[in-house]
Design a protein around this nucleic acid. Structure first.
Ligand SMILES: [Mn+2]
Ligand SMILES: [Mn+2]
Ligand SMILES: [Mn+2]
Ligand SMILES: [Mn+2]
Lengths: 222, 222
DNA sequence: TTTATTTTTTAGATTTGTCTAAATTTTATT
DNA sequence: AATAAAATTTAGACAAATCTAAAAAATAAA
């Protein structure tokens, strides 16, 4: 058996899903813009997707994915993001050059292939751009963003933002080898002054004050 | 930029290349049969490939790939076989379940992707079915098949066939741990009786007679 | 609430790749 | 050489996906 839906239909489903996520609602023009096509072409496709029971659609009234359409869209997103992860982690591509290639790879139909790839990659939770990778049932783990005071002990996390942007805090963080992207975990929290002891791989533990901890934001899965 | 040629065109080029290899010449019916399509469809496509300067074609007289067509075909074959190798060696697929999936993967267009994949796989010389993998210039190393008498000294090779199929020789080979797929090299050739000393990895050397050597066929690259 | 603007849909073409049925050419048999 | 059979090509049609231009509906402005 070949693919269940054409690449074109899959691209429409994915685009509608994404726009739905961002705006809650989607318009014909949105989709045309997203897919670099014409509104008339979108209308044509909406009818086809409706006929295939992937979409709820009433002309002039709007449209949205139904359960089946959402399910299909999530599997394409899963494939897209797993391939991106593969390209970066195994083939040494930069995170900024994988999207185009994944746009093609996401349409390869074999389910077994993608599940094996997932396993081969160690079941990654997010792609090189930090976006969550749905599992084979279409579920994904949320990436939580918290400051270091609220990061659970022993939870590996990645620095994703700095609150205070002053030269002083940046100098301090630089000295302690903490930068955007640094992976670390909190080893101890001292109740006395709310200071925190951190561990970065291959480095000796460092301590930071509550004031600093409040201004370092990290993200982690689950 | 997307793919230079459609998947369909690439499939035609590949089919024509293969049939040309086997029979020296190709007919419309051959191609129709190979691609599970109709002769009329083949004729239609021949015209398009000719217009694209990938094929020499004169109606009713026959056709064959020109230099450019051959070049394109070889790159598709390269992709097909590298992906098959990836599926077997990295994703633990059986050699009998990868062809279908590679039929889709071979149409992914990125040249950088396939060159990186080649590197990631360690520049394999042949795919899981023993077929040679062309390099990025479309050249491949021939796999030579010889009997053990003619295998160059110290050339690693793989047992690919047994001439005499009698129970006696099979018992002898079995006792010396030589079977289809065994990788070995010739360490010494004795001029006195043309007997040969072999080395199989992790085993002590074994000697076989000229008579046996004549009946064991091996293949090796280059 | 008319009128104007924007959005969406329809009507009719176009491109690519495929098909069937019929015509043409080549090849094989009397 | 004439006829039969097989291979190949053409003619005309169709499905999928796209487009332009025009019509219809919804929304915003006056
Ligand atoms: Mn992407
Ligand atoms: Mn991504
Ligand atoms: Mn294959
Ligand atoms: Mn193969």
């Amino acid at each position: 058996m070949g693919p269940k839906y054409s690449s074109s239909r899959e691209n429409y489903l994915k685009a509608i899903f994404h726009l739905q996520e961002i705006h809650g609602t989607v318009t014909t023009n949105d989709v045309a813009n997203e897919l670099q096509t014409r509104p008339a072409s979108v209308t044509d496709m909406l009818k086809k997707l409706k006929a295939q029971k992937l979409l709820l659609y009433e002309k002039y009234k709007g449209f949205k994915l139904n359960t089946e359409g959402r399910k299909v869209a999530l599997q394409i997103i899963r494939k897209h993001r797993l391939w991106e992860y593969f390209l970066v982690e195994k083939l040494r591509f930069g995170w900024d050059e994988v999207h185009e290639i994944a746009e093609e790879l996401e349409h390869i139909s074999s389910k077994k292939l993608i599940d094996r790839l997932d396993e081969f990659l160690g079941f990654p939770k997010s792609d090189p751009h930090g976006d969550p990778i749905p599992d084979s049932q279409g579920r994904w783990t949320l990436t939580r963003q918290v400051d270091l005071l609220n990061l659970p002990i022993n939870q590996m996390a990645e620095v994703s933002g700095i609150g205070d942007q002053s030269a002083e805090i940046l100098e301090l963080l630089n000295h302690k080898h903490i930068a955007l992207g640094t992976r670390l975990e909190v080893k101890k929290k001292f109740a006395f002054d709310n200071s925190i002891e951190l561990k970065i791989k291959n480095q000796s533990p460092v301590t930071i004050s509550e004031h600093v901890a409040k201004n370092v934001f990290v993200k982690y899965d689950e």
